[in-house]
Design a protein around this nucleic acid. Structure first.
Lengths: 245, 245
DNA sequence: AAGTGGTCTAGACCACCGA
DNA sequence: CGGTGGTCTAGACCACTTT
């Protein structure tokens, strides 16, 4: 029975919470089919329409997807790129291209104050830094530094990320039962730092897009802070505008 | 009766289309209340639940908003800034600040090829260029050049934009019955051009965020191409990430 | 044919708002 | 109090997919 909470929240909201928890616990893996709407309705003691409303909201939030005639499925975890992709600069109505990641390595660092603050950690807390290089058809496009609280993700290393297809978010999900959620992205134009210039094979100081991202678990606990430097000489970054029809 | 179309499309989709048309024609002004769900249901010969589904989708798309106990209202036209705002660089969980626009002027130009292409016009077609300066607490932040097809918006000038509170989109809505819809935004990091450097009071060549935007009418007809140069020395640009709960 | 999601209806009741 | 949106139910039928 799901009605225990005295209806402080609507039934369909309670159902969303319950299913999110189960998915977070790994009750169903990505691309695995959920029980049918009627089965869920019976199990939870509500009508099919109420289950449907809960599922519909979870679909629009990107947690589930539906296939008519087949069923409702758990969506893949968000990719490390986390945007729609890149597009040739100046051309609208052109197809979005998604870069591919190459894992450069993992290391342990102590959190600078600003970063500890953002992640809700003590000053100088231990972090794992994961460095990735993004390519678009062999051409180097961007470098990422992802910082994660070492305590929360004990044992995360290059081997484990590689096992997860080079994706930090995939590793978080498969090994630490965390489905990452994007909290906020901040974009700036900055001169390319020297170190990143070497990695990208580009002169220091050219204008690059700096993308800073904070990621949390479904429960709202910060799990990652990420810094990306993205070249935009020929390709432009396309943000994910919600309303697209 | 709305059932005329032989149900090729679901009823609620037809209702969305019908209401969008009526709003585009100015049947209800922004912040004006629509008929109640029951009244619409009776008028259209469908059940209240079907009307409700249509309205709910239009609310999530940002066309309408609801107030419990009061009614359903037409949303304001999108603002010229068109993003959530700016945030102090590096600080997450900080309040978003929305810049204010100052109208610099209007002029007529001929469309460069790339721009004519994006707007679906003939090469060299006449355009109206509207130039705006954005300020955040008196500090110059960004300059915009909005380009609109002169033929489509005959008579648009500085006076008319000023009458619309300095907003191009407001002018489009009030004088040309166009509710602008964002098609795509492209972001790049580029060196600040000389002319814009003068307007912003900043040295030529510093890295700035270049934001290129294509805007269309509800019917999908392109109505504006806009180029923004945005300083990001202390403040960062925050894209509108759909899923935010 | 059986099982799934997708649409639509009719009716009930609740929560909130304003007069 | 009446009017509005918000939730929930039960049942029907349709469209699509798989067996």
């Amino acid at each position: 029975m799901i009605r225990s909470q005295l209806r402080r929240q609507p039934l369909y909201t309670q159902i969303k919470t319950l299913l999110s928890q189960r998915i977070g616990e790994g009750a169903w893996q990505p691309n695995e089919m959920l029980p049918s709407e009627w089965e869920l309705a019976e199990e939870l003691g509500v009508s099919q329409g109420t289950v449907r409303k809960a599922l519909t909201e979870m679909v629009t939030e990107g947690m589930l997807y539906r296939q008519q005639g087949k069923g409702t499925f758990v969506a893949d975890v968000m990719g490390d790129w986390a945007g729609p992709g890149m597009v040739p600069a100046g051309l609208f109505r052109s197809r979005l291209e998604l870069p591919a990641a190459e894992l450069l390595g993992c290391s342990r660092v102590n959190a600078p104050d600003e970063l500890a603050e953002a992640l809700g950690l003590k000053r100088g807390a231990a972090l794992v830094r994961v460095r990735q290089l993004w390519r678009l058809q062999a051409e180097a496009l961007a470098v990422d530094d992802a910082y994660l609280p070492a305590e929360r993700i004990e044992g995360l290393d290059a081997k484990l990320v590689r096992q997860s297809g080079g994706s930090v978010y995939n590793a978080l999900h498969r090994h630490y039962a965390v489905r990452p959620v994007l909290v906020q992205e901040q974009l700036r134009a900055v001169p390319l730092p020297r170190e990143e210039g070497v990695l990208l094979g580009v002169a220091e100081g050219v204008p690059v897009l700096s993308i800073t991202r904070l990621t949390a678990s479904l429960q709202g606990e910060p799990v990652e802070w990420r810094q990306r430097y993205c070249l935009t000489r020929t390709m432009a970054y396309v943000p994910d505008h919600g309303r697209v029809a």
